[in-house]
Simulated assay, not measured.
Amino acid sequence: MDRLELGEGTFVTATEGVTNVRGGGYGADAWLAKITGPDPKFGFTRQFVKKDTSGLSGSGRSGSIRWDITENGIYEWRKFCIGSTSRNWESSGFCVIEDGSVREITKSAAIELVSKSVLA
Score class of each variant (00 low, 15 high):
Asp2Leu: 10
Leu4Gly: 09
Glu5Pro: 08
Leu6Met: 00
Glu8Met: 03
Glu8Pro: 03
Gly9Lys: 04
Thr10Lys: 08
Phe11Gly: 06
Val12Phe: 01
Val12Gln: 05
Thr13Phe: 06
Thr13Val: 01
Thr13His: 09
Thr13Leu: 05
Ala14Asn: 03
Ala14Glu: 02
Thr15Gln: 07
Glu16Asp: 07
Glu16Arg: 04
Glu16Gln: 05
Gly17Met: 00
Gly17Lys: 04
Gly17Thr: 06
Thr19Leu: 08
Asn20Leu: 13
Asn20Ser: 02
Val21Asp: 10
Gly23Asn: 07
Gly23Glu: 01
Gly23Asp: 05
Gly25Ile: 04
Gly25Lys: 11
Tyr26Lys: 02
Gly27Phe: 06
Gly27Ser: 02
Ala28Ile: 02
Ala30Ile: 09
Ala30Glu: 00
Trp31Val: 01
Trp31Met: 02
Ala33Pro: 01
Ala33Glu: 06
Lys34Gln: 12
Ile35Cys: 10
Ile35Val: 15
Thr36Val: 14
Thr36Asn: 03
Thr36Trp: 03
Pro38Lys: 08
Asp39Met: 01
Asp39Pro: 06
Lys41Ala: 10
Lys41Glu: 05
Phe42Ser: 13
Phe44Ser: 08
Phe44Arg: 09
Thr45Phe: 02
Thr45Gln: 09
Thr45Glu: 12
Thr45Cys: 05
Arg46Glu: 13
Gln47Arg: 12
Gln47Asp: 15
Gln47Cys: 06
Val49Ala: 14
Val49His: 12
Lys50Asn: 12
Lys51Asn: 12
Asp52Gln: 11
Asp52Met: 13
Asp52Phe: 14
Thr53Asn: 07
Thr53Gln: 11
Gly58Pro: 10
Gly58Ile: 05
Gly58Trp: 11
Ser59Glu: 08
Ser59Pro: 12
Gly60Lys: 10
Gly60Asn: 11
Ser62Leu: 01
Ser62Met: 04
Ser62Lys: 04
Gly63Leu: 09
Ser64Thr: 15
Arg66Lys: 15
Trp67Lys: 13
Trp67Arg: 09
Asp68Gln: 14
Asp68Val: 05
Asp68Glu: 12
Ile69Phe: 05
Gly73Lys: 02
Ile74Val: 04
Ile74Thr: 08
Ile74Lys: 00
Ile74Phe: 03
Glu76Gln: 12
Glu76Tyr: 10
Trp77Gln: 03
Arg78Met: 03
Arg78Phe: 00
Cys81Val: 00
Ile82Asn: 04
Gly83Phe: 06
Ser84His: 06
Ser84Ile: 12
Thr85Lys: 08
Ser86Cys: 00
Asn88Tyr: 00
Asn88Lys: 00
Asn88Pro: 12
Trp89Glu: 08
Trp89Ile: 01
Glu90Pro: 03
Ser91Trp: 04
Ser91Glu: 14
Ser92Gly: 11
Ser92Asn: 10
Gly93Tyr: 03
Phe94Arg: 00
Cys95Phe: 03
Cys95Trp: 04
Glu98Lys: 15
Glu98Pro: 01
Asp99Thr: 15
Gly100Pro: 09
Val102Asn: 09
Arg103Pro: 00
Lys107Gln: 15
Ser108Phe: 11
Ser108Gly: 07
Ala109Pro: 02
Ala110Cys: 11
Ala110Arg: 14
Ala110Met: 09
Glu112Asn: 13
Glu112Ile: 12
Leu113Arg: 14
Ser115Leu: 13
Ser115Gly: 14
Ser117His: 08
Ser117Cys: 02
Val118Thr: 04
Val118His: 02
Val118Asp: 10
Ala120Trp: 08
Ala120Tyr: 13
Ala120Gly: 14
